[in-house]
Amino acid sequence: MTNSFVLRADERGYNKILSTGATASYVGGHPDAFITRFSSFNFGDYQDGRPGFGRIRVFGDEAFHHPGCSYNMHPHHNFIICAFVLEGKLTHINTLGGLEELGPGDYYAFSAGSGGLHEELNRHVEPMRAIYLWLLPDHLLLPPSYTRGHFDAAAGLNRITLLIGDDAGAIPIAQDARVSRLVSDVPRSFRYRPRSTGHGIYAFVIDGTLRCDGATLKRRDSTAVWGADEIICETGRGDTDVLFVETIM
């Protein structure tokens, strides 16, 4: 039996997190910087939506405004935290020794495992926009790890490219989950076959329009489908950019 839900862009949780006042120690860049976060699932003070999907717990569509805007260095355990930079430049610093600036197409997977800290920073005037994805791990307190990758939109045009997962060229993670991206410039039909009917797919439209499992999705709309052998996605006219997260349910 196939199940699904559609989440419209404006149905997501929304937070504007200031670098002043109560959140000044959490968000850097005082006084002008602020972060905007649209949450697909319950996170922080947003608790009116869905708790997650499969092993996904956080799916944040975030923007860091003004130079110096950051989540200050803070600790994590267990979660596999992934970031996909869409616009601008993200400086990522972690306690595994990682210190690098990521641009559009770059992404990372930071598995906090038995403990790690990170900071996320925009040093520039141009806003930094990224998708933040948190997944439960398949084991608690794993050795922490950090891996960076790059999605080449030109090379991957009009096909679904695996970014995170257990195929060659993708970043492996300690969870039965995969992340793929599709950039398309022509209307076309794509077939996504999950590993089994026990896996669900969360499809998030970064840009453009996508017809997926009977629903028409616009920019920042998303859908989740589970219990299906496959889902058929039709991209619209013009540029379409979609992130797929497949997860065991």
Binding site: Q47, P51, R57, G113, S114, L136, P137, D138, H139, L140, L141, L142, P143
Partner: peptide
């Protein structure tokens, strides 16, 4: 209230 009960096994050697 924002903790979730999990049935995730420990990694090898944990909790050390």
């Amino acid at each position: 209230s924002r903790f979730e009960m999990v049935e995730i096994p420990y990694a090898i050697g944990q909790p050390a």
